[in-house]
Computed example of a mutant assay.
Amino acid sequence: MTPFADIFARAAERKGGVEALEAMLATTRPRPPADIARMRDDRILAEMTRWIFYAGFTWKVIDDKWGAFEEAFWRFDPNACAFMTDDQFGTLMQNRGIVRNGAKIKAVQANGKFLLDLEAEHGSAARFFADWPDSDHVGLLDVLKKRASHLGGDAAGRFLRAIGKPAFITTRDVVAALVREGVVSRAPGGKRDLALVQAAFNAWSTESGRDLTAISRVLAMSIGE
């Protein structure tokens, strides 16, 4: 497998040099686990919701409506969202201030319940995410896919980055880089492929001391002439 130093050098050459590349990477630095653990669970539910609603919409549309989302969903209090009544759901479906997508509104309710379950199991949802090992990122993605709602694929990785958790995202450019490096032969679609991707990221992280987010972004920026 190609040393990460060589991949980094390729990305730096494409992006105007080492300093320019480091400046780009600095915009997405993860938070220390202790900082993630101190997050309020309502803010975690808010970020889940933001990335669920971003999917299929121009992000600016959601950002412009976000104040209305906060108000409509009780500031994303997990208890309030989890125990949403049918009447409250109906009111949300009539609220022109938000995006009235029934499946995604129901996802907020399901994810509120998920966070309450994590609180019961781990003391807080924030503690659960903070304590999960980065070396098993694919395991965390699997938890989100199975136990949360509407948090599969890229949305899960982007949500994790939003709360400060290191995450790789298998975008088109990242997949192209992984194929170039011989890690996989196609976009990873099953547990075996994802295990190979995780192993490669773990090796590059050990070599470079960089987190999953940085490695993912460097891979993406190493693509092209």
Rank of each mutant, 00 (worst) to 15 (best):
A5T: 12
N111D: 14
M48D: 03
L212G: 02
K65W: 09
A199C: 00
E119A: 15
E70A: 12
K15D: 06
V174S: 10
V138T: 09
G102Y: 12
F114C: 03
D136T: 12
T58G: 09
R38W: 01
G152Y: 08
L151H: 00
L219H: 04
F129D: 09
V174F: 12
F69T: 03
A195H: 08
E47Y: 07
F114H: 09
P30H: 09
R43D: 13
R147E: 14
R180S: 10
A199K: 15
K106T: 13
R158A: 09
E181A: 14
V174I: 00
M84A: 12
F73Q: 07
M1W: 08
G190S: 13
R40K: 14
V197A: 09
F201P: 00
R127C: 00
W132L: 00
I215S: 09
A37M: 05
K113M: 05
E70L: 14
A82G: 11
F129T: 05
R100A: 03
D142E: 15
R43L: 06
E22Q: 13
N95G: 00
G190C: 05
N202E: 09
F89A: 03
V99T: 10
G182Y: 08
F159K: 01
A20V: 06
P188C: 10
V218R: 03
V218K: 09
G102H: 11
V218L: 13
E71I: 10
V175H: 10
V99A: 02
G190R: 14
D136L: 04
T28D: 08
Q88W: 07
I215R: 06
P3D: 14
